[in-house]
Design a protein around this nucleic acid. Sequence first.
DNA 1: ATACAAATTGCAATCGATTGCAAAAAGAAG
DNA 2: CTTCTTTTTGCAATCGATTGCAATTTGTAT
Lengths: 330, 330
Amino acid sequence: MTIYDIAREAGVAASTVSRVINNRPGIKKETRQKVQVLLKKYNYIPDAAARGLVMQSTRLVGILIVDIRVAHHTESAFVIEQELTKRGYCCITMGTGPRDEDKAEYIRILEQRRVEGVILMGSMFETDAVRESIKKHLPRVPIVMVNGYLDLPNVSGVIVDEDTGVEKCVDLLYARGKSRLAFVLDSRSPSNFRKQQGFCDGMKRHGAREEELWKYEMKESSVQGGYDITMQILKERPEIQGIIYTIDLVAVGGVRAAYDLGIPVPERLALVGIDNSIYGEICIPKLTTLDNRLQALSESAASILREGLEGKVQNKKLMMFSEIIEREST
Amino acid sequence: MTIYDIAREAGVAASTVSRVINNRPGIKKETRQKVQVLLKKYNYIPDAAARGLVMQSTRLVGILIVDIRVAHHTESAFVIEQELTKRGYCCITMGTGPRDEDKAEYIRILEQRRVEGVILMGSMFETDAVRESIKKHLPRVPIVMVNGYLDLPNVSGVIVDEDTGVEKCVDLLYARGKSRLAFVLDSRSPSNFRKQQGFCDGMKRHGAREEELWKYEMKESSVQGGYDITMQILKERPEIQGIIYTIDLVAVGGVRAAYDLGIPVPERLALVGIDNSIYGEICIPKLTTLDNRLQALSESAASILREGLEGKVQNKKLMMFSEIIEREST
DNA sequence: ATACAAATTGCAATCGATTGCAAAAAGAAG
DNA sequence: CTTCTTTTTGCAATCGATTGCAATTTGTAT
């Protein structure tokens, strides 16, 4: 059912139908009525692609997420989608997977669909392949990165102070009498190196020597991964009194490891996660975590993107401050 | 940058450029080369909307999820998206929110975008508003519902045997010596009433009387909700020996409640969830759960939709069988 | 050199909308 | 009943692609 079909049946020109649909003035009341009856009768909805073609505007926004199964990313996407849908945009959310060339490829797909704005979820998009693909395919579309940043004129970033946030975690552990600390990170995520920096800075400020900065890298952020590495840590260095993990999900594996080894938490071992995710609330004991302000971050991302969509300034960098949520594991 | 810009600079007609782009035969090698150089130079990507218009095919698929924050729905969306993207479709995933009129509205949006197929995630789409909206807006687009079914000629469903699955849980609890059982459900989700039926059937088969079928309804599927209702159950009926919850997430709240009350699990109280989600693996003790075969269900949904997209049969109903995963809470 | 077939290329219509401008119809004034 | 406005309406171009068919160029055989 096209605008022409309606026009023919109504005995008017397509342009008249179009004017009725878009509530343009200058149409006789009876004509308007007659057309509206037919529109309703056939449940006519204009084709967004055809309209976009002539209007030169798709009102399409792309949301790219590496892995849509990661809870805090979908939480964030949820907030952003709500906000933009309210404003008449259609959000197409896509999971890219971890491979760099795939992330670049999805940016190409977004160009193909002529999106007017993009959200990149998470620091895993902070890579050269992505930067090049943006320069190549979307050099002037407003892009906002959540928890990350790329130095391009059309890319803005909303980030949280991960380094000083982790420093605060170190301070907390020292305040609880734990000074021999380990730090566990997933080396695939660039933001984790910022967190690691905070760990090192904090430790040194408390007088720790270089060789006492126990850092453990892993390649997979999962419960099992957290379990395994925690087992390894506790075996290699039984003197460790506290562990900071870059994600709650992994920390939760650590909680289980301590449980299986019969190590009381937090008495003999304190554990800290980052994210303030539901996982930390579920486990026993409840996890002390660093709230990365995801809700606020997402809201800001949505509003910065909205400004961009309306043609306002770009290339902003917005910083928010994290907050420790102390629960039962410290 | 359009196909005409390329054509002008190459000194050929737009049709020639189009033929180069689509690898059509009958173009001289040198012409092809010359055009390809320009395509690369300007990073030209054809506009999907314009192409879709003339080709009468958008290669767009819509995935509707009530709440993209629910882990098992995004897990499933992830699987489906991967499969369809591989086949050249572009999946637009959208979170509708719980309101019926919004779900119907999103179906309208999908019509506007002229999607060629739709996935509806979860039984919460089993409503009249959705059925009417499909009849109105997408009466001949192949639609597949995951874990639900609507009786329309273009809608297929892949479902799991929730009723007999829950019956198996009842059997397990009886086998573990627990016979005074409670059932907790979220009354907003139609599939939960199928589960409740299984609970009742199972209990009766074991000789329970009608008044011993303790059913508790809640309006919110959350950890806190599970905690609260479990507290209530254990206070009202301290004789309860086992509780079956319709989602792991809620069951996990129950684990915490038992812990806070000092009730040993599974010795004095056995707990069973449904979903086989990560939440159940995280908590201590690990949760016994009913695997709803989500992975397999999603794969089937993707392949049924693919058949539909290729114009094959529709209106299938596929049933899979759930399986108990016994862990530490029974 | 000529005729004819084959390989290239371009013209113009099409997809489903929107919109400026001209034409037609309706209404107002003389 | 004109004439001049003011409303309504329709024509035709446009957006960025694709494709059947005709036109042109090239190659081959005579």
